[in-house]
């Protein structure tokens, strides 16, 4: 079993994939808790779609190397626009998001439909290509992770106060719109960092599933953050190892990103089952108070 978990990663490309996946797993797990408590899953999903035109334009301008900068520009633009529109108009947040999501995505589709040779790269963008990650991709992801840790260290308390009780936080003098902007930008950065490895379709799972699982396991925020980051890490590792083993040892091709997501979802299912069992047992036990 340990051989299965460690041996494959001797090959440099797999070692790079593992490092990238581990950083992303922990990063998405931690930021996912903010997504969970602020109920921003839909915003996250919308950002994954809004990066699409950025990816296309970036690719047209400078090929593979243009994808991350292009995605970054669009994600930051979308997160900024959303924060601005949501704080100044009476249109509900979800409607604002729907408008942004579809308009950005439509621009992307129009651009793609004018190209002939894009389909292969498009698939990589949708589902990720963790096995062809290079050193620069890892550096970008690591930089986002460092930034995320810094933001959480400095702004953790204001972000918590704003997530729990917005009106009180505002009355206490916190600049809520600014905090929202920082939080939304952070989500945008994490989405962009994840796009190369797991693809836009699956990023949302990396952000939401470990946090939701951790929430099932604990009521305490520090524990939830730690468990969520740990689950993200573990899911990335097990998923990659399973994908490698299936492909090499059993001749079944399993997409790495999707396998990671399936492992995370399996964890969620287990936690759900465990919680159900725990409740059933507690109900049968005599009350000891």
């Amino acid at each position: 079993m340990t051989g299965l978990l460690i041996d494959p990663f001797g090959a440099p490309y797999l070692a790079r994939a593992l490092v990238e996946a581990l950083i992303l797993g922990a990063l998405c797990g931690a930021i996912g808790v903010y997504v969970l408590v602020r109920r921003l899953a839909f915003l996250t999903d919308a950002i994954t779609h809004t990066v699409f035109p950025g990816v296309v334009i970036g690719f047209l301008v400078s090929g593979q190397a243009g994808i991350v900068p292009g995605a970054l520009v669009c994600a930051v633009l979308a997160a900024g626009l959303f924060t601005l529109i949501a704080s100044t108009t009476r249109v509900s947040d979800d409607a604002t998001l729907a408008v942004l999501l579809t308009s950005f995505f439509a621009v992307g589709v129009v651009l793609v439909s004018r190209q002939r040779s894009y389909t292969a790269d498009l698939t990589a963008f949708l589902f990720g290509h963790v096995l062809t990650i290079d050193r620069d991709d890892i550096l970008v992801t690591a930089a986002v992770a460092v930034l995320a840790v810094l933001v959480l260290l400095v702004l953790g308390r204001p972000l918590l106060a704003g997530a729990f009780d917005r009106e009180w936080a505002r009355a206490s003098g916190y600049r809520i719109t600014l905090l929202d902007l920082v939080g939304n930008m952070l989500i945008a950065l994490v989405v962009v960092a994840s796009v190369q490895a797991v693809g836009t379709v699956l990023v949302i799972a990396m952000l939401v599933v470990p946090a939701a699982t951790a929430r099932l396991i604990s009521d305490r925020l520090p524990v939830i953050v730690a468990v969520s980051a740990g689950l993200g890490l573990l899911g990335a590792w097990l998923g990659l190892a399973a994908s490698y083993s299936a492909s090499i040892d059993h001749g079944v091709r399993l997409a790495a990103g999707a396998t990671i997501v399936l492992v995370l979802v399996a964890g969620y299912a287990l936690a759900l089952l465990g919680r159900g069992l725990h409740r059933a047992l507690v109900r049968r036990m005599p009350v000891a108070r």
Binding site: V37, P158, A161, A163, F164, A171, G173, D219
Partner: peptide, 30 residues
């Protein structure tokens, strides 16, 4: 603002939010 404390209605807050009573009170010190 910093010298005025606001007590909102408790039922406007999400009862599922993972936060302990002690953490909520500590917010007053932030």
């Amino acid at each position: 603002r910093r010298q005025v404390a606001y007590v909102p209605q408790a039922d406007t807050l999400d009862p599922d939010f993972p936060i302990s009573v002690a953490q909520v009170v500590l917010m007053g010190r932030y």
